[in-house]
Design a protein around this nucleic acid. Structure first.
Lengths: 143, 143
DNA sequence: CTATATGCAAATATTTTGCACTGCT
DNA sequence: AGCAGTGCAAAATATTTGCATATAG
């Protein structure tokens, strides 16, 4: 049994390489929404010869195959998420982590927007900002 | 009568310079949500000696004074908005323009999120993506 | 007059590209 | 074997920084 990534790559005429699978795996197995650099660093021990360029080129393909989605919470770099359903994200302003918000039904909100705009909607991205529970604790410690 | 920007700058110990006022004015008078480069280009005719560095430095101050908000719809650069109330934005995937969505009350949606997260919320940003009405027309023309 | 701001140029950071070599299929 | 993919280095793009000069207060 072939996994989804393997068959999708092959179907679209892309070659299945260890690098591509490894990059997708990093994204599939983390909830940290890593940037290209973070993916690169994560893979260094296992693939010491892998280049950042390969990470970027692979991300491009994974995006095209809709295997990942792109996030931009307002940092200078992009982050990537292998969960491709369109859920909101929340970003801690103190530690910078980005987490999924799952189990939200935004249908009503989206419908309201759809009915008020002349655009044909194709998607949306909801970002929330705040302080995570860990950072809230730290905040309250003296100094 | 002094305008808000002038007095706010002065109050916080920043000097009031023609450059700073001009940059804020560009943002206050447009609905295009320009990037730093777009602001710079807009000001070229009037302030031919202004440098991009000044645009970036001024944006930093305006952000600090909460006179502008920062947007990132997923481009490689940031955009800025002098409307600082937290309204959704919509981005046309064809022509790239970014427009305000006004008159939406997202309180219920935000409250739902607030009640489901352990974060102390400080803000949010809603981006919608689609095809604007102008681009929809163009789309349908033969070729 | 003094301290801050500007403008230039150089530095930094992120992402993209060109090309010789490698390795899937 | 053939062609797409990788890795390196260089380029492109966006943003930041250092510093000499200009200017607001």
């Amino acid at each position: 049994m072939e996994c989804r990534v393997t068959s999708l790559l092959r179907d679209k005429g892309f070659k299945v390489t260890p690098q591509r699978l490894a990059i997708y795996d990093v994204l599939a197995k983390t909830k940290a929404h890593p940037s290209a650099e973070m993916i690169f660093n994560e893979l260094q021990p296992l693939y010491p010869t892998m280049s950042l360029a390969t990470v970027y080129k692979t991300i491009e393909i994974l995006k095209e195959l809709k295997l990942i989605q792109v996030l931009n919470v307002g940092e200078d770099s992009f982050r990537y998420d292998a969960k491709t359903d369109n859920h909101p994200h929340i970003n801690c302003c103190k530690c910078g982590k980005v987490e999924d918000i799952l189990g939200i039904d935004a249908t009503d909100f989206i419908d309201t927007i759809a009915s008020q705009t002349s655009y044909r909607l194709t998607g949306q991205q909801f970002y929330f900002y705040g302080v995570c529970s860990e950072c809230q604790k730290t905040e309250k410690l003296p100094q």
